[in-house]
Nucleic acid binder design. Structure first.
Lengths: 401, 401
DNA sequence: AACCCTAGTTGGCACGTGCCAGTATTCAAA
DNA sequence: TTTGAATACTGGCACGTGCCAACTAGGGTT
C-alpha cells in the first residue's frame, strides 16, 4: 500500500491532510511548509457504498489462475464451425453465409472475443502500425494527437505511441516502436543526433515533426516559422513601427527559421534588425532576461518573441517597470499556447495541427509504400492572430527608463 | 500532395502565405481575414542541401519489396549457433558462454535485430503491458504520463497508450488496449457509463484515474479534492473571511467531492455556505458567468472556483469591472494548471502526479496478480499553493457595484 | 570403468492468427 | 450423365518467439 496516498477503509475516520506551499512568482520566493493531520470526522457518503461492495462480493468471476482470453477457436467451437470461418467473418471477407456470420458474431460477443493484435501483426506481412514518438512536456504539440489519429485511420493505419520522459529516452521509445514492428515512425521534436537519424532512416521510414533536418533521408513537417514571423513583422511595420526587436532563443529547435522571417521582413523594408539572443532554457525566464537587456538600451517600439512563453515573461517584466502594452511597447509571441489568456491577449502566430498531421501521415505512408525515399520538407501554413498586445508605435521613439 | 501545405522543390521560389485572424477576447469579437500570396524571393539556405540529397542519392538500401526485419534466426545463422541460444542471450538468461553471448550481441547489433514484441507477447503467458487510456485535451493529466512510465517500468510493465479523440472513442480505445492483450487497463477521466465499466471490470483488471465510481470492482485513484478545498476554505477563514462563495461546475467530473470540502469547512466553522452552480462547459466562460451572477448580489469577500480555468475567467471579469484582487476580493482556483502564470498568480491546489501514478500502478498490478479483486479507492495528497490572489478580507463586507 | 554434476547448447512444441489451396454441395449448362 | 462454375466452408502451414526437455562435453567422485 502506497504511503503517499490514503485508502478508505471501513469504520475508520477519514483523515484529510494537505501539504501547503507558500509561493510567490513575483519576488522569486518559494517557501515550504507542511501541515499534517488536518482532521475531519465527516463521513464521505460513498464510503458506505464502497464498503458494501467490499463485503458483498466474495468471489470473482475472473479467476487469476485462468486468465486466458477467448480465441477464434473458442468462438468456432461454440458455433460448431471451423476456426478459419471465424477468421473470415472478422476480416469481413466475402463468401460467408449470412446466417452463419451472424451466429459467429453473436457467439464472439457473448464470450467476449477480441482479435489478438499481436497474432495479427505477427502473421500479416504488414502490421498497419505507425509509431509516434513525442515528449510529454511539449505543449505546442497538444492538438496534434487527435489529428494524427484521424489521418492515420483514414489511411488505414493504427497509431502506436511512445512518450519520451525522464525514465524513457528517445532511443528507448524508438526501440519500442520498432519492436512493435511499426511500418514507419514519426519523431516529434526529436533531439537525437543527425548521425543516428541518418542510420535510422535507412532501416525504417521516418518523418520528423517540428524539427527540420539536413542530409537525412526522411520527411520533415514543420510549421512555416519564417512565413509566420515574416508576416508578424510586416504587420508591425504596417502599423508604423521601425524599431522592432526580435528575441531569439538560440537553443530552441528551428528557432533560426523564425529569425530568418524577421530578418527578411526587416531587409525588404530596409530597416535595421535588432536581435536579442538568449542562451539556455527558453521560456518565461528567458523572456524576462531579454526584457532586462532591452530595458538598459533605448526601448524599441515593438518586440517579437520566439515563442509565447518568452513573450509572457517579457511582457510581465515590462509591466512590472510600469510600461503600458501596447501604448508604449507592442509585444508579439509565437505558438498561441498561452497567448489567448485574457490577461495577456497576445498577438501571436498559430500553427495548424490538422495540416501538419495530414502532411505527416501522407508523407510517411508514401515512404512505407516505397513511393518516396529521398529527403523532403513540408511547411504547413500558419495564421497570424492579432490581439490587443500590438498597436501603433508610441509618439516618442526615444524612451529610456 | 496535400494542398494545405507547401513543399520545397528545386528551382522554385518559396511561397510564404499566412492566414491572418484578427481576434479579441475582450469584446468577444472574432473576425476572419485571409491574406494569400505573401511572396518572398529569398532563398532558404538549407534548400540547397535538400536538393543535393534529392539528386545525389538514387537508390535506397531499404528496398520496399523486401521489408523483412531480421529475426533471431538471422542472428543465429550469422554467428553459427542455434536460434534458442540467441533467445537466451536476449532474455539475459544464465548459462550462456560469455564469448558466445558477446558474439551474438555484436551480430545482432550489426544486422539491426530487435525482438518482435508481438511474437513475445503471443508466446509468453503474459504480455507485460499495461493499457493507458486518456483524453488528448485533458491538461490536468499532463504531468502524469512520465510518472506512469516510471512506475510501470519499476513494476516490470510496459505502457501501451490509447488516446481518445473525435475519431477514436473511449470504446475504440478500450478495444484497442484489450486487442494488444494488456493485462490491465487504466482509464483516465473516463466518461463511460457505469454499467459498461461494471462489465469491463469483470473481464480485465481496471483502475479509474480521476473519476470515482460506485459499485465497480475496480481501483479508483483520484486526488483528494475534498481535502484540498477543505484546506483552501479553512485557509481563507483563517485570514478572516466569513462570506466565502464557491463556484461549482456541476458537470465537471468529481466536482461534488470538492464542493463537499467547502461545505464541510463552512459547516465546521458555523458559516453559511454560498454556492454558485454553473451548468454546461466549465472553463473560462463558466467562471465569467459566475462572476456576472455574483456581481448582481452582495459581493463575497472571497471566491473559490472548482478549477483554475474558471478562476481565470472569473477574476478577469472582476478586474474588468474595476475590482482589485486581493484587496477587495480574494480568488482561489484548483488544479494549478494556469494559476502559476504571473499575471494571475492564483492561490490554488496542486495534485501530485507522482503519487497518483504510483497508487494507480500498484493497485493495478495487485489486481493483475489476483491479490485484489474488490473495489478500492485511493485519494492522493494535494498541496495548497498560496499565491498573491488571496489576502485578508476588505473592511466593508457590503459591497455592491 | 561406471557414475554423477555442471556449464553450454540444441530440438520440439505452442501461442493466435492470415493466407493459400483444397473440398463439399448445389445448380445450371452441355 | 458429364462438365463447369459458383457458393460455403475446412486443412495445413507459417509468422517469431518462450519454454521445457534433452543432449553433449569435460571433469571429478565413487
Amino acid at each position: 500500500m502506497p504511503n503517499t496516498s490514503q485508502q478508505f477503509s471501513k469504520n475508520k475516520d477519514l483523515l484529510w491532510h494537505v501539504h501547503i506551499v507558500f509561493s510567490s512568482y513575483h519576488v522569486g520566493f518559494m517557501g515550504h511548509k507542511r501541515w499534517l493531520g488536518e482532521k475531519m470526522v465527516r463521513q464521505i457518503p460513498h464510503r458506505a457504498n464502497t464498503s458494501r461492495i467490499d463485503t458483498m462480493v466474495t468471489k470473482s468471476s475472473r479467476t487469476p489462475a485462468e486468465p486466458k482470453r477467448p480465441t477464434m477457436g473458442d468462438v468456432a467451437k461454440r458455433v460448431g464451425v471451423s476456426r478459419q470461418l471465424v477468421g473470415l467473418v472478422f476480416q469481413n471477407a466475402p463468401g460467408v453465409g449470412e446466417t452463419t456470420a451472424a451466429k459467429i458474431r453473436a457467439a464472439a460477443k457473448e464470450i467476449g472475443y477480441r482479435p489478438n493484435l499481436a497474432a495479427q501483426s505477427l502473421r500479416r506481412d504488414s502490421s498497419n502500425y505507425i509509431g509516434f514518438m513525442f515528449h510529454s512536456d511539449h505543449s505546442s504539440m497538444q492538438g496534434i494527437l487527435p489529428a494524427m489519429y484521424k489521418h492515420a485511420k483514414a489511411a488505414g493505419y493504427q497509431i502506436v505511441m511512445s512518450v519520451v520522459s525522464e525514465s524513457h529516452s528517445e532511443n528507448d521509445a524508438i526501440e519500442e516502436l520498432i519492436g512493435h514492428r511499426c511500418e514507419g515512425i514519426v519523431l516529434s521534436s526529436s533531439h537525437i543526433p543527425i548521425s543516428r537519424l541518418q542510420r535510422l532512416a535507412r532501416e525504417i521510414p521516418l518523418v520528423s515533426l517540428g524539427r527540420r533536418l539536413e542530409n537525412v533521408r526522411a520527411g520533415m513537417v514543420s510549421s512555416n516559422g519564417e512565413a509566420g514571423v515574416f508576416t508578424i513583422t510586416k504587420y508591425l511595420i504596417g502599423l508604423g513601427h521601425t524599431d522592432i526587436a526580435y528575441v531569439f532563443g538560440k537553443l530552441m529547435r528551428d528557432a533560426e527559421f523564425r529569425l530568418e522571417g524577421y530578418m527578411a521582413a526587416m531587409e525588404v523594408n530596409k530597416l535595421t534588425p535588432r536581435v536579442v539572443t538568449i542562451d539556455g532554457d527558453f521560456a518565461e525566464r528567458g523572456g524576462a532576461n531579454a526584457a532586462n537587456i532591452l530595458l538598459t538600451e533605448n526601448l524599441p517600439t515593438a518586440i517579437i518573441c520566439n515563442n509565447d512563453q518568452s513573450a509572457l515573461g517579457l511582457s510581465h517584466r515590462l509591466l512590472q517597470v510600469g510600461l503600458r502594452i501596447p501604448d508604449q511597447v507592442s509585444v508579439a509571441g509565437y505558438d498561441d499556447t498561452v497567448a489567448k489568456f485574457p490577461f495577456l491577449d497576445l498577438t501571436t502566430v498559430r500553427q495548424d495541427p490538422h495540416a501538419m498531421a495530414k502532411a505527416t501521415i501522407e508523407d510517411l505512408v508514401a515512404r512505407i509504400t516505397g513511393e518516396k525515399i529521398l529527403s523532403e520538407t513540408f511547411l504547413t501554413d500558419v495564421s497570424l492572430i492579432v490581439r490587443s498586445s500590438t498597436g501603433k508605435p508610441r509618439r516618442d521613439p526615444n524612451l529610456r527608463l
